[in-house]
Write a protein that binds this DNA or RNA. Structure first.
Lengths: 193, 193
DNA sequence: ACCATTTCTTAACAAATGTTATCGTCGTTC
DNA sequence: GAACGACGATAACATTTGTTAAGAAATGGT
C-alpha cells in the first residue's frame, strides 16, 4: 500500500509506513455509503480496489462531483479537517477494498508530523495540486460546452468513461443522461463521416 | 499594508512585515494588463486599492474567472510557483494601487520561511482554503442554474455585482451578457409581484 | 457641455438542453 | 427461465440559452 507514494517521496518512507499501519482494511459491496452528506466525517479512505463516487443531493437528485479509483485517497476534506458537516456523500459503486483512517489516529499522526519540516513542505505541494485541480475543473465549466467537457473526459480520463455508468457521468458533467446520450450519438455520427 | 493579516496571525507579525518590505508600490490606470496569458508569471500582486479581473481567452472571447479587490493577493499560482505559462490574464479594470512582489524575492523569502514550522502550517491552511474555494465554485457549476448562481453572487458577494460591469459578471457566471440581462429582468419582475 | 465609447436592454430567431415517457438490453435474483 | 431493476437510446415537446442587431442609457475624456 502507498507504494507509488513512497516511490515518489523516498525521503518520507518511514513516516508513510507509520501512516499505513493505522489504516484498517475493509471490503465493501457496491452501493455502500462510506460517508453521508451532512454527517461530520471522522474517516478518510484509501482505495485499494474498486471505485468510489462522490455526490451530493440537489433538490432530490444526485449530483456527482468526483470519481476515485485504485491508489487514490479521498475524504470530505473540509468536513474531516474542520469538523463541519460534509457537503457530499461518498459511495462505493463497485465492490471495493478500502483502507480506513480514523480521525483520531490522523490527528495523533499529524501532531507528530507537524514537527517535521519536510513533511509539511510535501503537504503544501499536495494541497496545492488539489487546488489547481479544482481550479481547472471550475475554469472548464465556465469555458466549455457539455460536449467539449465530455470529449475532455474521454481524452484525459478514458478509464472514467469506461468504468462509470453513463448517468453518473452525465451528472458529473452537469447535464442530464438524455442529453449525454444525444451527445454520444452526435459524436459517433460525426466520426463515421 | 497586510494589517488584516497581522491581526489574524499576530505570532507571524515580524515575518509578515519582512515580507511587506519587498513589495513595490505601483499605480496603474484601468485596463492595465499585469500578466498576459501564456507568459510565465514572475510577479505576485497585492491590491491596495481598485479591482483586478482574472480572465482567459477562449476561441477569441474573454472568459472571466475571478475578481480581486482591496486586501486580496493574486498571482497565477501555478505559473508563479511552477514556472509554467500562465493559463490566464490579470488585468486592472479600475485605476488601482498594486503592490508587486518579484519571484526572486519571493523565493529568497520562502527559503528562509521554510525553516519555520509555524509559517508552513499557516501556509497549509491558506492553500487549503483556496482548495475549498475552488471546489465550491466547481460544485456550484454542476449544481446551479445561471440564475441561481447570480442570486448566490448577489447574496454572498454583493460588492462584486455593484462594482463589476455586467458583461464581465456574465462571463464569470458562464453565460452571455444578454442572458444575464434577461435574468435580471426576470428577477426584478418577480420582486414586484 | 460635448463627443466618443462602453454598457445595458430588448427583440426575433436559432440552437442547446431539459422533461417525460417508452422501449430494448442486460445482469441479478429467486 | 421468469421477474425484476438498472441502464441506455430515442422521440416529442417545453424551456433555457445563445446569436445578432439595434437603440437607449451611462460613463469618461477633453
Amino acid at each position: 500500500m502507498f507504494e507509488q507514494l513512497i516511490a515518489r517521496l523516498p525521503h518520507l518512507k518511514e513516516r508513510i509506513e507509520k501512516y499505513t499501519e493505522l489504516y484498517q482494511r475493509m471490503e465493501v459491496p457496491a452501493r455502500t455509503i462510506l460517508l453521508h452528506e451532512g454527517d461530520i466525517s471522522r474517516r478518510s479512505f484509501y482505495v485499494e480496489k474498486g471505485c468510489l463516487r462522490v455526490w451530493f443531493n440537489n433538490n432530490g437528485r444526485d449530483v456527482t462531483c468526483q470519481f476515485m479509483f485504485e491508489g487514490q485517497v479521498v475524504s470530505s476534506a473540509d468536513s474531516f479537517k474542520r469538523n463541519i458537516p460534509s457537503s457530499f456523500t461518498i459511495e462505493a459503486i463497485e465492490p471495493s477494498i478500502i483502507h480506513v483512517l480514523y480521525k483520531k489516529d490522523y490527528d495523533t499522526l499529524m501532531a507528530d508530523l507537524n514537527e517535521d519540516k519536510a513533511f509539511l513542505q510535501e503537504m503544501v505541494e499536495i494541497i496545492f495540486d488539489r487546488q489547481i485541480h479544482y481550479m481547472r475543473e471550475f475554469m472548464s465549466f465556465i469555458r466549455d460546452t457539455p460536449q467539449q467537457r465530455y470529449l475532455n473526459l474521454l481524452r484525459d480520463k478514458p478509464h472514467v468513461v469506461q468504468r462509470i455508468p453513463q448517468h453518473y457521468i452525465a451528472s458529473y458533467l452537469g447535464i442530464t443522461s438524455v442529453h449525454l446520450s444525444r451527445i454520444r450519438n452526435k459524436i459517433a455520427r460525426e466520426n463515421i463521416r
